[in-house]
Simulated assay, not measured.
Amino acid sequence: MMILDFGDIIANRITSTTVIDIIGELITIENVKEVKSNGSKRKLLEFELQDSNNIKLQCSLWGDYAVQVSQYIQKANSGIIIIVIQLAKTKPYGGKITITNALYASILINPDIPEVVDLKKSQIPTEKAYSIEGDFLLLTERKTLDEIREAREVCTCVTLATIQKIQTDYNWFYNACKKYQRKINAENGKFWCEKYNENARFVIPRYRVQVLVIDHTCTASFILFDHEAKQFIHKSAVELRERLTKEDDDDSFPQELDVLVKRKLLFKIQVSEFNLNQNWPVFSVSKMTNDENLIVAFRDNLDLNQESTGQEYFTNEAESTKKKDGLDNGSLSVTGDNEVKICSSDNITPCKRNLLESDVEH
């Protein structure tokens, strides 16, 4: 396989009639959309790849390629996703050079080949700038609350649930150092920042709101931290704490938190080692949204993505829902005759307790 350098592609050193092979890490991805092309409607999937030199390249897949690759990525766990496109071609779009599939192209995801192993080794894990659609609908595993509570492995997943109530047995904030915004402890009359192992000169409150959520399967407890809580409260924990202090009402829960109750939201949550080792059914929320379009899309696709028939091959769009169990560690090959092969790759009621390190933002 002759892999072409992204720099040569972006510099427009390749003619649009030349077919090429590329390999890169998936950085961003959008939803599949339907667009008009040459007088007919076609499926389009747009995404961005990054090579070993951290050069980014816009890519687009059409037709069955778009649908099948999108469906596979929806089932893949979060982590490094490497995409190989063989027999691709360049195309100017929006003033930039983009990559698209040729007629008989092949698309492989996380194949067990030396080029993929080398690229994975070269990549430093970072928080990818996935679109909100990609993050909630494509790249993160979906689970019900019952499946989250029954999880036996560390994972990140998305779930749809309604906040039933604020759990007022737990405080709604924690004290953090102003400089690093991390949890602090009081020692000998001083505040100590655990994360960076130094004295904290200034201390501020940050949100840590524990809520009871419910879906059609069961209930669970989620923790909303500062960024997520402020999306809906529209005031900082500092403002609410100062108001309560002025009113000599430090022990009360601020009424502003009530805006969270009865909201149906998509939550991206983490099942951590602490959850598993301590059998602790309280899960941290890393992102959440009330976007109605995302909620509808999530609900519409939930049943489809939970189906699994054990089929190893599917050869047309009508059979594209027949996906194999265990995609999390697998690889995908999409070829020009629309054949897809999925193969193995070697590669609730919590008790009261003190605030632990696992309960605060990192």
Rank of each mutant, 00 (worst) to 15 (best):
I73E: 00
L87R: 14
Y130A: 08
S60V: 09
N77I: 14
N101L: 06
K128A: 06
Q123G: 08
N101E: 03
G134T: 02
D118Y: 14
T90D: 05
A102C: 10
V84S: 06
Y72A: 06
T126D: 13
Y130R: 04
G134R: 03
S70T: 08
Q58I: 01
Q86K: 15
S131A: 02
S78N: 15
S70A: 08
A129S: 13
Q74E: 12
S122L: 08
P111G: 06
Q86S: 08
Q68S: 14
N77Y: 14
I81W: 05
P111S: 02
Q71E: 12
P92M: 09
D112M: 03
V84A: 09
S106I: 07
V67S: 11
I80A: 14
W62T: 03
E115T: 10
A129G: 12
G95H: 04
I97H: 01
N101S: 04
G79F: 05
S60F: 02
G134W: 05
V117F: 15
I85K: 05
S60A: 13
D118F: 12
G79K: 07
A76V: 15
I73Y: 03
L87D: 13
G63E: 12
P114C: 08
I85G: 00
K91T: 10
G63Q: 07
A102D: 09
I109S: 00
I82Q: 08
A102S: 13
L61H: 07
W62L: 03
L103T: 15
E133I: 09
L108R: 05
L87V: 12
I109W: 00
S131N: 04
P92L: 08
Y104E: 12
G79L: 01
G79I: 11
I113G: 11
G95F: 02
T98C: 08
I124S: 10
S60D: 00
A105Q: 07
S60R: 02
T126H: 10
K120P: 04
K89F: 13
V84G: 02
I85P: 04
Q74S: 13
S122M: 11
S70M: 06
I113T: 07
Q74C: 15
Q123S: 15
A66F: 01
K91G: 09
C59P: 04
G95C: 10
K75S: 06
P92H: 09
S131V: 01
K120W: 06
V117M: 13
P111D: 08
Y130D: 11
P114Q: 05
D118A: 15
I81M: 06
K75Y: 07
Q68G: 14
D118H: 14
V69I: 10
V67F: 02
I97M: 11
N77L: 14
I82F: 04
N110A: 06
I109C: 05
I80N: 12
Q68I: 13
K96D: 09
G94A: 08
V69S: 03
D64N: 15
I99S: 03
Y130K: 07
L61Q: 00
V69G: 05
V69R: 04
P92G: 05
V67Q: 06
Q123A: 11
K89L: 12
